[in-house]
Design a protein around this nucleic acid. Structure first.
Lengths: 226, 226
DNA sequence: TAGATTGTTAATCGATTAACAATC
DNA sequence: TAGATTGTTAATCGATTAACAATC
């Protein structure tokens, strides 16, 4: 058993390490809590929430306790305050500046989606190599030529870069942006970015997602034929 | 120990139960193998592939062996044949008929994306409530009014429905489609669909995805301030 | 045949679930 | 206070990794 001070430090640094499984469930909690607020529910027990979300009450309590004791014995959780706490954890109370590289349908869909703004996401600019798009404005966000990407990043705060361009461009642009100091990427290109370990990439691989579904469709067809 | 026949049956039905974790890795294998083919690589060992994909060789061999012994001792895996085998498993050799409900930016982006066709996905129709879109054609796919959805589904083969409409519509439309016999949903609406257990839903929750990234951004900011 | 590498079993690790003492 | 429900520890389950015999 190490010295007390050491031990606490160890515990603290451990508690920072939230597993990916837990993180990936937070937005879903957030979503259900919002619905509960809208339905006028004031408090909820982990048991009730588990029935609603088709999870175990145990998992909910474990997950939430990674971040602090938000509940109260004999009462449960206050919906509004839990919602706010999870919001804080997810960072919705800060402003995150994003740029979108690729002003195709996907890039435009993202910039136009109403839901992001309410959670602190601020789209600063779109970039595209198509000169006919440059200078235009999509949902109040201006399209610049990709040539201007570097100077934009150097002169403006950019927290997250969304990549909605094909594979080759995404690899090239992400490397360049990494060199310029960008560390957070929301990648829609159908490839894994090749970046150093401190870059954080969240992938949205639409073809992969559809293939998983296709796998199940094909499986069930085989079963039907049996 | 049960009778031999019984036991084999048990083993077989077990082997059908591939875990979600394994399934979710298949499209990635498929992707890397394609790249290897394009690079002209003829054979690869699990060890080499593991270095490339940043996984363990053990996991790769375990994963592949759920579906059969595709490798050869002392040789490794033949890239082309492994690619084809995984393709078959994912169902890319069959045609999957899809319709897209919601002809907004996201729906249009999906229908226009070039990559799906090569993997057996065939987009039959788009649906929207916006009458100014109806009758138009996007990348060769006609937009119908949502009123025509029911009759379309009854008169055409539809394997998968992509939902690219807001929450309320998605809940309503998915229930209706379930009643009409549809079981596979690719859901982009920011909600969990409320459908019976035999419906298979693959969610693409963009806000959830971005919030996960936001969580990490906020975390690292806290660390920097410490 | 010898070397390489798989397929597969066994060991480990991590995540989920169950149980219950703490406490509102 | 009694009942309810959390926070948290312990047990279980499943997934990943390691090891190695089988075999090309």
């Amino acid at each position: 058993m190490p010295e007390q001070g050491f031990y606490n430090l160890f515990i603290m640094s451990q508690s920072n390490q939230i597993s990916k499984a837990v993180i990936s469930r937070l937005p879903r909690y957030y979503r259900y809590l919002r619905e509960l607020i809208e339905a006028g529910t004031e408090r909820i027990s982990s048991e009730e929430l588990s029935r609603l979300m088709k999870a175990t009450a145990s998992q909910i309590r474990q997950d939430l306790n990674h971040f602090g004791g938000f509940g109260q014995q004999g009462y449960g959780y206050n919906v509004k305050s839990l919602y706010n706490e999870i919001g804080k954890i997810l960072g919705v109370e800060e402003v995150h500046d994003l740029i979108v590289v690729g002003a195709g349908n996907l890039g435009r869909a993202i910039v136009r989606y109403k839901g992001f703004g309410a959670h602190g996401f601020h789209f600063c600019a779109l970039f595209d190599i198509d000169e006919t798009l440059c200078g235009k404005t999509i949902n109040g966000v201006r399209v610049y030529h990709t040539d201007e990407l570097e100077s934009f990043v150097l002169n403006n705060n950019v927290d997250i870069v969304a990549l909605t361009i094909p594979t080759d461009g995404a690899l090239k642009v992400s490397k360049k942006l990494y060199e310029l100091g960008i560390r957070y990427f929301w990648n829609f290109a159908h490839t894994d970015l090749e970046l150093p370990g401190d870059a954080i990439v969240k992938n949205v691989h639409l073809l992969d997602s559809l293939l998983e579904l296709s796998f199940t469709v094909s499986r069930s067809k085989i079963k039907e034929e049996e």
